[in-house]
Amino acid sequence: MNLAVVLVSPKTPGNIGSAARAMLNMGARDLRLVAPRCDHLDSQSVAMAVHAEDLLRSARVYPTLRDALADRDLSVGTSARVRADLPPGRHPATLRPLVRAAAAPALVFGPEETGLINSDLEQCQVTVRIPTGDYASLNLAQAVLLVCYEFLQGGDEVTAAERKTATREDMEAMYGHLRETMQLIGYTDAVRARHTLRLWRAMLDRALMSPAESRLFRGFLRQVKWKVDSAARAGDPADAEQP
């Protein structure tokens, strides 16, 4: 499986090296780092990676999470907390068929001290929560090991369905277009737009759109803008009237 592991703003070299080792243990080889706060090739990181040094050295560094997910067709965020306005985290085993059916899935982990923030989780179609005892805080490498095991080694193999899903870059561009359109027609305003868009994201991400479907949706949004602009140019209040 072409599973990418994305570490957002990791703080310590040792955690990056340990995460690389955990990935190699479970058969994942695509490590991506978003705005790391340390040198991922520091001697401590290399030492903790052990036999995963090549995996560590081939890691790609990105300025933003959006850049890191641009070529992925499914992104799975990780969180131990319940977030307002965001779907609750699911048990890893329940997401296994979805991940294995994807052509290019990504597994996203947040900074060691805070985890992923809401704006990061908004870019993930689903969230996974590792079931634990009362003390839910896991070391970064432990979390990488457990979830990679569930997706790559755990349970029976699921035959991947032949499908092509829109990349996250396709979807993020579509969501930016949707936000502009919602504000254009007065469906929401700048204050409420983020909350409203979260609800739309949750619904549309569940659809697992194909590239053609995302283009179809954006064609509809372009037609809405054309209609509004045409009504404004014609000065016809009836055409521009809001429902």
Rank of each mutant, 00 (worst) to 15 (best):
R194C: 07
A93S: 13
N2Y: 05
A52L: 10
A141R: 09
V126P: 04
L146S: 09
L3R: 02
R32D: 01
R198M: 11
M203S: 14
A102Y: 02
L216N: 15
A70E: 03
S58M: 14
A70R: 03
K164R: 14
S18Y: 02
G154A: 09
A4V: 02
S9M: 10
A59K: 02
V46S: 13
V46Y: 11
E180V: 03
A93V: 11
R215K: 14
M1Q: 13
V8W: 02
D156F: 06
L24Y: 01
L33H: 02
Q153W: 05
S18V: 06
S45K: 08
L184S: 07
T181D: 10
L31A: 05
L98N: 10
P88C: 08
P105I: 02
R198K: 11
D239S: 15
L55Y: 05
D85F: 13
R32S: 07
D229F: 07
A106M: 04
L216Q: 15
H51I: 10
D205F: 11
E113C: 04
G27Y: 04
D42Y: 08
D42L: 10
Y62N: 05
A84H: 09
A19E: 00
G89C: 00
D54Y: 09
V76E: 03
P105W: 07
L116R: 03
A238W: 14
G154W: 07
S43C: 12
G133K: 13
N118G: 09
A136Y: 08
A70T: 03
V76L: 07
L55D: 08
L204P: 08
V5D: 08
T188H: 07
L152M: 08
A80M: 04
E162W: 12
L98I: 09
R129D: 10
R72L: 00
A93P: 01
A22D: 08
A238M: 14
V144G: 01
D30R: 04
S214G: 13
W200D: 12
M171F: 11
R215P: 09
A102W: 06
M182G: 01
T64Y: 01
T132M: 14
C148H: 04
V76A: 04
D229L: 12
T196A: 15
D189L: 01
E162N: 14
R218Q: 15
R96C: 12
A52T: 09
V8I: 03
P92G: 05
R168Y: 13
L107G: 06
P92T: 01
D239C: 15
L74K: 07
A28C: 07
A28H: 02
A161S: 14
E122D: 14
D54N: 12
L216M: 15
T78N: 01
H51N: 13
N25P: 03
S210C: 10
A49V: 02
V191S: 12
